[in-house]
Simulated scan of single mutants.
Amino acid sequence: MNRQELSTLAHRRHPISAPVDEAAADELLRAALPEGEGRALDLGCGSAAWLLRALAVHPGLRATGVDLSESALRTARAEAERLGLGDRLALHRQDAAEFRSARPYDLVLTVGASHAHGGLLPALEAARAHLAPGGAVLLGEGYWERTPSPAAVELLGELRDLADTVAAVGAAGWTPVHGHTSTRRERDAYEWSWTGSLAAWALDHPEHPDSGQAREAAELHREEWLRTYRDCFGFVCLVLRRTG
């Protein structure tokens, strides 16, 4: 079982691939979505949970999702059909950094996916390339809530603190018009769901050849979370517009 399939299983009970609860996700989308008809693009959509929520509340919206995980896209297609939204959602199995479109988008989402572009600022540049004039970007990014240990930096990479994250976004030519800082409760709920969903699948499928791998992945992730980054990692979502 590859990493993408493991991630799809881990997000079964928390399809939003970020430590953000449903109420916060809806509030962010209300702040980011265009009025009237529009187009939305998610660069690293996973199972397209953000796009499906947006389509459900915005009948004039059409959406495109890009992701490398075939299992996540398969889940997205099935859910879109179940909700009657399949005719307004296009999905592409492709590297988000390589995706091109002939028409710009009114909303571009890159939530927890900056690694696919090489970091925060490259992710914003990738989003800008797809953005229509006056459009918005919904960015989700990790940050250090407290000074991290060397082990946390080795595991999660070189992140900024929250103030420096917002300052870097502003220096790159973006203005936050809305935001949400994930609470400890949201972050814990996400991690318990991630590890618990994967562990439960392994217990429910003991004869599956990947059961042991899934259980070990859940145990490793839980150990890293509890011992290495639970007390120092934060997550922020920002609705951004071009400053000039």
Rank of each mutant, 00 (worst) to 15 (best):
5 E>M: 08
7 S>D: 10
8 T>M: 11
8 T>W: 11
10 A>G: 04
10 A>I: 00
10 A>V: 01
11 H>T: 12
11 H>E: 09
14 H>N: 12
19 P>Q: 06
24 A>Y: 04
24 A>E: 03
24 A>C: 01
27 E>H: 06
27 E>Y: 01
31 A>H: 05
31 A>E: 09
33 L>V: 10
33 L>S: 04
35 E>H: 13
40 A>Q: 10
41 L>H: 09
42 D>S: 12
42 D>C: 06
45 C>N: 06
47 S>E: 15
47 S>A: 14
52 L>Q: 13
52 L>H: 07
52 L>E: 02
61 L>S: 12
63 A>F: 00
65 G>R: 01
67 D>R: 03
68 L>H: 03
69 S>M: 00
69 S>P: 00
72 A>D: 08
73 L>W: 03
73 L>S: 08
79 E>W: 02
81 E>Y: 02
81 E>M: 07
87 D>C: 02
89 L>E: 11
91 L>I: 06
94 Q>I: 02
96 A>Q: 12
99 F>G: 07
100 R>I: 05
101 S>Q: 05
101 S>R: 03
102 A>D: 15
102 A>V: 13
102 A>F: 07
102 A>I: 02
103 R>T: 11
104 P>F: 03
106 D>H: 15
111 V>Q: 06
113 A>L: 02
117 H>T: 00
122 P>N: 12
124 L>I: 10
125 E>V: 10
132 A>H: 09
134 G>S: 11
136 A>C: 09
138 L>D: 02
139 L>W: 01
139 L>S: 00
142 G>H: 11
146 R>D: 05
147 T>A: 13
149 S>V: 10
150 P>E: 12
151 A>G: 06
152 A>E: 06
155 L>A: 15
156 L>K: 11
158 E>M: 07
165 T>E: 06
167 A>Q: 14
167 A>L: 13
175 T>Q: 15
176 P>R: 09
180 H>I: 03
182 S>A: 15
184 R>A: 12
185 R>L: 11
186 E>R: 06
187 R>P: 01
188 D>N: 13
191 E>L: 09
194 W>M: 13
196 G>S: 07
199 A>P: 01
201 W>S: 09
203 L>P: 00
213 Q>D: 12
214 A>Q: 02
214 A>N: 14
214 A>H: 13
222 R>S: 14
225 W>D: 00
228 T>R: 01
235 F>V: 05
237 C>N: 14
237 C>K: 00
238 L>K: 00
239 V>F: 06
243 T>W: 06
